[in-house]
Design a binder for these strands. Structure first.
Lengths: 334, 334
DNA sequence: CTGAAAGCGCTTACAG
DNA sequence: CTGAAAGCGCTTACAG
């Protein structure tokens, strides 16, 4: 391995000068710069990130925690996030918690001694232990889709209540009165909790009594959507429309409707959440809620960088707009 | 930040002893061990990974490159890979190349000065520059789904030719003679290249002449599958069955068949590749090729660890079995 | 404009 | 069984 000292020797300068040339951290004679740059090329020198990190205290590592790997929704967030991180000179450490609190704790602890410079979390697993860990971790942290009053970092989320109300109102406008909801498990603080409020508000606004049989809660996943919808379809009084908390839940639900011998949207309307790429190609095409995944990824890095620069910036909550995208899986009551 | 010296001071021993207690790297008096462990707990001490890394030369970081983020196939590989890495004390750095050679090179260079201990690559982007980079990187490297004679590390792949031949034979057995293929872009060495051979071998074996109009090549993605299938359907002599190189391509293709006013599998049979979780929930359920994604992730880490331990182990090629999973998207010619 | 030297927090021969 | 000390490869006051 070639070190900064090899470069210094070859360029006949001190390693301090080499360091300053590389980091542009003080004025250096143009000729000296040239000599150093030549030596760097000659030796194909790459600074050692661990040595630099040890000295400066910055690892140039950003940790990303994601709740559930199969949910493609986050893949699109990750893409823009990675690009933004790379542009700023950071690498990203990824861990899927796979719905497991312990995995999440393990990952944060592991990253703590890796001295990560920032942490981005897309996971509803927020408990007391979590707050402790984040406190100890003591680095900029961005939470996605969460509205936690105890959290001292930055938050990016949407107005889940309003958009859900809008979506359910849209169903009611189509003539549906038997509107069910397949909810993802709703943890404290997670904005998914707001969706229930939006769902109920829409029904109440239309003077439709709330039927608890029609509100079911489950993990986010295709199979879970399938199972829950199967149960809904076998009720003596099944719903004619279903609002779900994710596109995966919706895709599973669509499959269950078809397996029950019914048609979408003639017999049952279905709405998803997130607008993953596949939504447009489903059969039938899925009506869903659009989220700006690219923007979420960019913003997350932006917020981390801002807080690295100035840790005392007051915490910000950024609320991103969402949109109801009407496709083929929803239609008038027949 | 609390350091090893703080612990040593509190436990009234040398930092060498603390280090040895932590790493179990020499015999220490049980009472001393207890004192040290007490001090560690007391101060809530975590060893600094960068300092350790600088000294030992091991970063405990494994880089993972993935070609295309939206392809859920890899999410399942990643999950088991992350768990295995974590169990062995490693963290994973992830970068999606998003089909871009430059991104791939950037990531490898970035990780080079991070001193990654291993690299796992799921990407067909293999050129001369790639071989140079890997050479320079000089750490254990595992390639997925590639069969590159120039590569000196370990390879995990399937027998893509045989399984493709089997799948196409299955279509022929159903009475199809007009069998098309929507191929993912086929890079040198990538096992996708073997699929073409399998496709052609099956046709030749049944004395079906090969029609070049029916073999189209495109990027791996839903939209690409859609576009290519649309074109196939508008040929004067359209195929009655389509073998595709990924489930995403197949899902796009199914959508295109339906949009052309045709039915699956009555008018057109479709086969995917990978068996992503969604395949079972598609409408109709997708016939596809199963790959053991969990095993791939575990094996990749296993191979890296083995090579870290002994870099001189001769390169291994592991060939994992695959299976044709027949569901609803394929059926007899009508 | 440049260099000598201390030090970041560990590990690991070396010595006893 | 334990400790004193060197050193991993950088950065950064300090001095000139």
């Amino acid at each position: 391995m070639t070190t900064i000292n090899d470069v210094a020797k070859l360029a006949k300068v001190s390693n301090a000068t080499v360091s300053h040339v590389i980091n542009k951290t003080r004025k250096v004679n143009p000729e000296t710069i040239e000599k150093v740059e030549w030596a760097i090329r000659e030796l194909n020198y790459q600074p050692n990130a661990m040595a630099r990190g040890l000295k400066t205290g910055n690892s140039k590592l950003i940790g990303v925690l994601n709740y559930y790997s199969v949910d493609v929704y986050f893949a699109e967030v990750l893409t823009s996030l990675e690009a933004a991180a790379h542009d700023a000179g950071y690498s990203v450490l990824l861990r899927h918690t796979e719905r497991d609190c312990e995995n999440q704790g393990d990952a944060i602890s592991e990253w703590m001694n890796k001295n990560i410079d920032g942490l981005i979390i897309n996971s509803p697993l927020i408990d007391d232990q979590f707050h402790d860990l984040i406190e100890k971790l003591n680095c900029p942290c961005v939470l996605l889709h969460v509205d936690d009053p105890l959290f001292k970092g930055d938050i990016i989320r949407g107005n889940d209540q309003d958009i859900t109300e809008e979506a359910v109102n849209y169903l009611i406008g189509l003539g549906h009165e038997r509107v069910a909801c397949i909810a993802g498990i709703t943890y404290d603080y997670h904005t998914a909790a707001q969706r229930r409020a939006g769902y109920e508000k829409a029904l109440q606004g239309a003077n439709i009594p709330i039927n608890n049989e029609w509100f079911v809660s489950t993990e986010y996943g295709v199979d879970e959507g399938y199972q829950q919808c199967k149960s809904l379809m076998s009720l003596t009084n099944p719903p004619t429309a279903i609002f779900t908390y994710s596109d995966l839940l919706a895709i599973g639900a669509m499959r269950a409707v078809v397996d029950s011998g019914l048609h979408i949207p003639k017999d049952v309307s279905i709405i998803g959440f997130d607008d993953i790429q596949l939504a447009e190609y489903c059969i039938p095409r899925l009506t869903t809620i659009y989220q700006d995944k690219k923007r979420i990824g960019e913003l997350a890095i932006e917020l981390i960088l801002k807080r690295i620069e100035n840790p005392d910036v007051p915490p910000s909550q950024i609320i991103l707009p969402m949109d109801l995208v009407v496709r083929e899986s929803s239609g008038p009551l027949q």
